[in-house]
């Protein structure tokens, strides 16, 4: 578009890391490979994204000249489905991918989609079909994955400038867990470590709640929002014995985001914002 070199889109990194996690699970954690599911998630997601974008721009988009490159976002959402959602039925895969992508076009408020697409797709599919599930224990809590997820996730998160949410969420959630398990209940420290080093929690913190498109725009609002999600998720898991609570809470709290945006006004996030910022930096120098 301009002569200034564009920094690589952070979504490339995100996709790469998601693929790494998937390979890690298949190779090291010996997950059963659900190839049909993976293919259905991805194909359905991409096709619907293409239709959706074509519809919004009122013309048929050429698949190889896809403006704003919506396929990247669709692919990331579909990789999330591959990593998280389990089902034994092909039609549920299609259903889940459809909910995931369509939620972006259908459930919108002031030009911004409300739900994190994959979180919405996953939770809606689990609740509606009752034939799909999440496996929060699938990552285990081995130290290797712990560090890998942290480091890789850190890079992705910092590239899109939203590490604030990740840290606010993690610190709050871990802090509450520590207070409950170690300080109050008197469990030994390894009980707490097992809780916080679980891959599912870290993946959620670095790749899902950090999604810049569905978080509040204002920096302070983002922190409050992350702390809120962490607190509610902690309460439900510690006192109501529910599983995978962060992702449920993220989905159910999503409608609060427009509220935050209304009260605390700030600039909306765009994926090509970095390009804009990079450009302005060069000029200002």
């Amino acid at each position: 578009m301009t002569g200034i070199p564009k920094p690589p889109d952070a979504r490339y990194f995100q996709m790469t890391f998601q693929l790494l996690f998937l390979s890690y699970g298949l190779l090291f954690l010996q997950w059963k490979a659900e190839w049909l599911n993976y293919i259905l998630f991805i194909i359905t997601g991409l096709i619907l994204q293409w239709i959706g974008d074509s519809f919004l721009s009122k013309k048929i988009i050429h698949p190889f000249h896809w403006e704003n490159e919506g396929w990247k976002s669709a692919l990331i959402s579909c990789f999330s489905l591959c990593l998280l959602l389990k089902t034994n039925h092909w039609y549920i895969c299609i259903f889940a991918a459809a909910l995931t992508v369509l939620s972006k076009y259908v459930i919108r408020y002031k030009g911004k989609h409300i739900f994190n697409p994959s979180a919405f797709g996953i939770i809606a599919t689990v609740i509606i079909t009752k034939d799909a599930w999440l496996s929060p224990g699938q990552w285990g809590s081995g130290a290797v994955i712990f560090f890998a997820v942290c480091c890789l996730g850190f890079i992705v998160a910092s590239k899109v400038q939203k590490l604030d949410i990740t840290l606010a969420f993690l610190i709050t959630f871990a802090g509450l867990l520590f207070a409950r398990q170690v300080v109050y209940l008197d469990w030994s420290i390894d009980v707490f470590l097992q809780s916080v080093s679980t891959g599912s929690l870290l993946l959620f913190s670095f790749f899902m709640i950090s999604d810049p498109k569905t978080a509040p725009n204002h920096p302070a609002a983002r922190i409050i929002w992350a702390v809120l999600i962490a607190a509610v998720a902690f309460y439900l898991s510690a006192f109501k014995w529910m599983n995978s609570t962060p992702i449920y809470v993220l989905v159910f709290a999503a409608p609060l985001v427009p509220l935050f945006d209304r009260i605390m006004k700030s600039v909306k996030f765009e994926w090509n914002q970095q390009a804009i910022r990079a450009k302005s930096k060069v000029i200002s120098i």
Partner: peptide, 14 residues
Amino acid sequence: RNGRIESTNYRTMQ
């Protein structure tokens, strides 16, 4: 009633 059980805080391997 519905299906397999698995652990949520450990890995359940086959």
